[in-house]
Design a protein around this nucleic acid. Structure first.
Length: 203
DNA sequence: GCAATGATGCACT
DNA sequence: GTGCATCATTGCG
């Protein structure tokens, strides 16, 4: 890896909506048993501060949400529905609880290994089912809670590399998914970002 | 194609 | 005990 490609604390410490949008097109990299797994980030969601009723952190500082109050550039990985891991990246200044959920990537390297992690047969079709959702991409990239609170700026095992940014015209926004429990204004906030037309964006 | 449903572990009242 | 920032499968037509 070239050091200058590694996204730094400075990048993640920006406002959460900025980070969520600018993560599109960047490369998610996972190293497992010397094998590089890479995907281009295609879809993200922002969870912003105490006042966002959709965010786990709106309930305050607990064992589970503590990491969201910590420094930017750490991972927040939690288990949902008893079986799926959600991969988030902490943003903003310390004590401001916020994070970006990575919802989908377009796989580019290590696809055969990802298929094994997903228990799909080699050459399975269609390939889009490999990583077109937050639970699926975590499974494909072997991301689980052992990587909670991981420092993504260290360039070890799990990190993000800079790549060409998509043009603003090719980015779409809309409401976040799966947050029916949130207040109406938070449900409708356009805090989901995706690359328009990318076939790996979740349903 | 789509809607309905069950799986499953853990943080938190 | 309750409720999830989800997914695969089933059953319909």
């Amino acid at each position: 890896m070239i050091d200058s490609d590694l996204l730094s604390h400075h990048f993640y410490a920006q406002p959460t909506l900025t980070v969520a949008e600018r993560l599109l097109g960047q490369r998610l990299v996972r190293l497992v048993d010397g094998q590089r797994l890479v995907g281009v980030i295609a879809e993200t969601e922002a969870y912003v501060g105490f006042d966002d009723s959709a965010s786990h952190a709106s309930k305050g500082r607990t064992t589970r949400t503590e990491v969201m109050f910590g420094p930017a550039g750490c991972s927040y990985v939690y288990l949902i529905y008893g079986m799926y891991n959600m991969f988030n990246i902490v943003t903003e200044q310390t004590d401001v609880p916020a994070a970006v959920l990575i919802r989908a990537v377009e796989p580019t390297e290590g696809i055969a290994v990802m298929q094994r992690h997903r228990r799909q047969p080699p050459n399975a079709t269609p390939q889009r089912l490999l990583t077109n959702g937050p639970g699926k991409l975590s499974q494909a990239f072997a991301i689980d809670r052992s990587l909670n609170r991981w420092d993504l700026t260290a360039g070890r095992d799990l990190w993000i590399e800079a790549a060409a940014a998509p043009s603003p015209a090719s980015i779409s926004t809309g409401p976040r998914i799966g947050i029916d429990y949130a207040d109406a204004n938070d449900r409708s906030a356009p805090w989901r970002f995706w690359m328009t037309g990318n076939r790996f964006v979740s349903k």
